[in-house]
Write a protein that binds this DNA or RNA. Structure first.
Ligand SMILES: [Zn+2]
Ligand SMILES: [Zn+2]
Ligand SMILES: [Zn+2]
Ligand SMILES: [Zn+2]
Lengths: 166, 166
DNA sequence: AAATAAATGTTATAGTATTACATTATCTCT
DNA sequence: AGAGATAATGTAATACTATAACATTTATTT
């Protein structure tokens, strides 16, 4: 899976399928259960590279075998977060599949304000900068998240065609 | 006002008073009104260096001259956000006074998971790293926020005394 | 003073998340 | 296989966060 796929055309079905398979294997490796419910919700989260809210997922499991109530969804989201299989985008109250599960998480996202796609980037410079500033302030880092808002390559060119540049 | 004051003992009353005064002057300079309601809520937000939720503020204006309803609070928060006088901490659904109003905002916070205090840091390295990675992905940055979680200096030493170090 | 614009009041509702307890499915051990 | 323990899911209620729509009041402009 290519890192920039969130912002470019690609075979997303394959993208999704391989993410599910990878999640299954990681769960097995970690001795936790990738149940039908978890698989179904994880698959739904991977339906696109747009962060999706818990209640959207709730709507989508209506009619399935599972209880379409908030705890069903939130419990499963908590599991997937714990396993590092998904991330939460705080500013959107939404969830998105992790592109490097099992590897170190940088928690850095570029979020397009036009098309809502979010790209997770693994960036050492940001991590280094965070560690440096934290050290300067004698702050012991446990976790961090960086959410970058703006316009993805696609949406920039569309804007260029329709707006006067500043 | 010292930058690290959120994590250290200081004369917070003076800290709060000068923040209110600075806000008043900035509003005057920008031709917007720093009304009684806005001043009262801004003062409440500056009651400490802990991010505070809208509904906590709502509780606190009960008994005042103002209508203690959500729109009252949210509208005022929106105004203060627009003027760059406060920030929103996305992961906490909470608001905190800005330490450098009028200056460039980096939107970087170190948040102590133990004592809830949050320190806004103005850090060029993080900004540079974000601009660099955004440029690499041809992403046009409009805004960003970095929330760093961990333990502040005070809470670290308390932990050191009560826990075995790893 | 009248007209306009800005701010606040008021009511209702939408959206997000958790608590507590009951039931079912799976695992472990004999 | 069966009993007991653990994990996962079902269910009902509630708490928390935020916005929409419209009315009224206050401040500004002419
Ligand atoms: Zn894809
Ligand atoms: Zn886009
Ligand atoms: Zn202070
Ligand atoms: Zn602390």
């Amino acid at each position: 899976m290519k890192v920039d796929s969130a912002f470019s055309h690609h075979n997303h079905h394959q993208c999704q399928t391989s993410a599910v398979e990878q999640a299954r294997q990681l769960c097995e490796k970690n001795g936790v259960r990738f149940t039908k419910l978890r698989e179904q919700l994880f698959t739904l989260i991977w339906q696109s590279h747009k962060p999706v809210t818990a209640y959207k997922l709730l709507d989508q499991i209506k009619g399935s075998d599972f209880s379409a109530t908030p705890p069903t969804v939130y419990r499963t989201l908590d599991f997937l977060l714990d396993q590092g299989l998904i991330h939460r985008i705080n500013s959107l109250n939404a969830f998105i599949g992790c592109c490097q599960p099992g590897k170190r998480h940088t928690g850095t996202f570029m979020i397009c304000e036009q098309c809502d796609h979010a790209l997770e980037v693994d960036n050492t410079n940001i991590l280094n900068a965070i560690q440096k500033v934290s050290h300067q302030h004698n702050f012991q880092v446990k976790n961090y998240i960086t959410e970058i808002y703006g316009f993805c390559p696609q949406c920039q060119s569309e804007k260029d065609n329709s707006e006067v540049q500043s």
